[in-house]
């Protein structure tokens, strides 16, 4: 039995009279790349936000490496070892790529006061440089993140999520708006990172091709409940899933 990183237990959440998520449970194990898919309005985002502690579920709970995330602020979640990327562009535009990455790691180094009196880069330049070259952004190291292309900023966003060496990374529509060349590059890098570091990923994504080729296991939601779960091949062949997507 491998180690459980993320455990979702009987989550329910409704808004007004609408049940966005109904009694959903599943576990994600160390080193897995789990895809969370489903048609629009299937409850993916609600579930995602419950995991991030941004929504409080009506029932059930979420634990990450055994710790309850309920009521945790984003920065506390980060300290628990949860990294994330954002659907929209989410870099620090007026800071260099290097500074973006150092900022992504510095809060996990030492105490507040050791950071104030310690070195300016919190001792992270080397690690940030390694991350930058891992994502092949070396030539952009000292450029302002805001001046990068859309795809490049997505890479920076992803790189930032890894700087604190998290146990779990939540990828919120990583493929959205990224061109094909860049998409291949992003996918390949994510896979490599996953293999090298055994970091667990949970991916929400609309781009089926991307999900199928990146993930090791997929959970399909429809109308707030899990309708299927399995390897990409199983999901591809699953009639219930096809029906749900076609809306019949």
């Amino acid at each position: 039995m491998t180690e459980t990183v993320l455990s979702i237990r009987n989550i329910s959440k409704s808004f007004g009279g609408i049940h966005a998520v109904r009694d959903v449970s599943f576990d994600v194990y160390k080193g897995e790349v789990l895809g969370l898919i489903g048609p629009n309005g299937s409850g993916k985002s609600t579930l995602f936000n419950c995991v991030l502690g941004q929504l409080k579920p009506d029932a059930g709970g979420v634990t990450v490496t055994g710790q309850d995330v309920a009521g945790k602020r984003a920065c506390e979640l980060s300290k628990l070892g949860v990294g994330r990327t954002f659907q929209q562009l989410s870099v620090f535009p007026e800071m260099s790529v290097l500074d973006n990455l150092i900022l992504a790691g510095q809060e996990h180094r030492g105490s507040m006061f050791s950071r104030l009196f310690g070195p300016s880069d919190a001792g992270l330049t080397e690690e940030a440089d390694r991350m930058i070259s891992f994502f092949r952004l070396g030539h952009l190291r000292d450029e302002l993140a805001g001046s990068l292309s859309y795809g490049q900023q997505k890479l920076v966003d992803a790189a930032m999520a890894f700087m604190a060496n998290p146990a779990l990374v939540l990828l919120d529509e990583p493929a959205g708006g990224v061109n094909l060349t860049m998409l291949g590059h992003l996918k390949e890098r994510l896979k490599t990172y996953n293999r090298e570091h055994e970091t667990t990923f949970v991916v929400i994504e609309h781009n089926m091709e991307f999900v199928m080729s990146l993930c090791t296991r997929i959970v399909v939601l429809a109308e707030g409940a899990i309708i299927a779960e399995g390897t990409p091949e199983e999901i591809r062949a699953n009639q219930t899933v096809i029906d749900a997507y076609l809306g019949s």
């Binding site: 870099v91 535009p93 809060e107």
Partner: peptide, 12 residues
């Protein structure tokens, strides 16, 4: 620059 992103990276 981006308080939400900063918060998600552990900045209090």
């Amino acid at each position: 620059e981006n308080p939400i992103r900063a918060n998600s990276l552990g900045v209090d």
